[in-house]
Design a protein around this nucleic acid. Sequence first.
DNA 1: AAAAATTTTTAGATTTGTCTAAACTTATAA
DNA 2: TTATAAGTTTAGACAAATCTAAAAATTTTT
Lengths: 216, 216
Amino acid sequence: MQSYTEENYLKIIYHLSVISNPVQTNAIAEKIQTKAASVTDMLKKLSDKELVDYVKYQGVTLTEKGKLAAINIVRKHRLWEVFLVEKLNFKWDEVHDVAEELEHIKSTLLIERLDEFLEFPKVDPHGDPIPDQHGNFAAISFVKLNRLKVNDKGTITGVSEHSSPFLKHLEKLGLTLGKKIEVSEIIDFDGSVELSIDGNKINISREVAKHILISK
Amino acid sequence: MQSYTEENYLKIIYHLSVISNPVQTNAIAEKIQTKAASVTDMLKKLSDKELVDYVKYQGVTLTEKGKLAAINIVRKHRLWEVFLVEKLNFKWDEVHDVAEELEHIKSTLLIERLDEFLEFPKVDPHGDPIPDQHGNFAAISFVKLNRLKVNDKGTITGVSEHSSPFLKHLEKLGLTLGKKIEVSEIIDFDGSVELSIDGNKINISREVAKHILISK
DNA sequence: AAAAATTTTTAGATTTGTCTAAACTTATAA
DNA sequence: TTATAAGTTTAGACAAATCTAAAAATTTTT
């Protein structure tokens, strides 16, 4: 069994390893809001427990065991987010911190019953896929909104940025999951994108477009 | 704000202080599964934070601030228990350990929304009252089943023992919350009680009867 | 390929909560 | 009222997770 802190490290390493593998000490330190020296200490510990493969100065990779543990935490986090939004009327920008705590509750029965109660959701309120008990994800295909061409259509199915200000901004613009959009113009000057949504036209910056995931 | 451990101490002191006040070091040590020396250390810390009044060798009492903190944890514990039983189909003997973890999740919004979602329950699955946001309990009156006389009638409204074996035993006998019972005989020899319940007659030991709470 | 910059690790200290063993208080009994 | 027992506290140590400062390794630049 892992401690609360160990679980957080595993989860962060998991998320970072999607971007680049092996994961660097400093990258972990930044995400976990701690110092590189503390990360080194923890990596040794996780390595002793065979949750990560760690080579001094070279970074870490999750072992199969570590990866399973990490995915399990991600599963719990995302199920709790669904619960908060669907059952307790939280907004999608309010769920992260609470789910961050709830994800560490240790009870297999609890999480399986919660999954059932929520009717086995496949994605969380940000469109991220929820792995099943065995750690398998349903394949979800999407493109970033900034990659679309003029006249391309699609549905908003996710976001790649989870900060509250960003999510509130999208909410205000009506850019929520499930909404259908069409690209009406791409402004050369700044790369910003003009969209049709709900019959209106709105302009969003390239920076915002980058973090909106679209499926056909 | 209190740590996870501090919260546990406050909760235990609260429960013990109902039985005898001030609360003794050893009583806490036993409940919290630790050594008296560790308790002494923690009492000093809680005293520094003005959560308890602590006099060396004399025991502790919760301050108003400590009592509010403790009741808030009890509130969260009991609301989560209701959630587990009502929404996730946990049995009443399965909820304690999970609620023990859930009670430490820090989010006022979460707990107020949960309360609303559960439609403001007044009691938990064991019949214990759930304090409101301000720490007020609804008055619940009851007598212990072993105090009833022959022909006395009443409804099971609570239990004063929360162990899984005890609760499973009651469940097997059909002695669950809300059930109406009538005392048909009290056996002098061992103090055991014969009850009518659902048209059947059953015999329960005095020890079991002591922990069943009855209201008229 | 040596110098400079960046990244990472080590060494030693700190905090929280725990422990054992010994010392001290209070309560009980002879 | 002294002796004994029970309960509590102190002193000193330890494990987990963190930190700072300095040393070491790696990468980048010149």
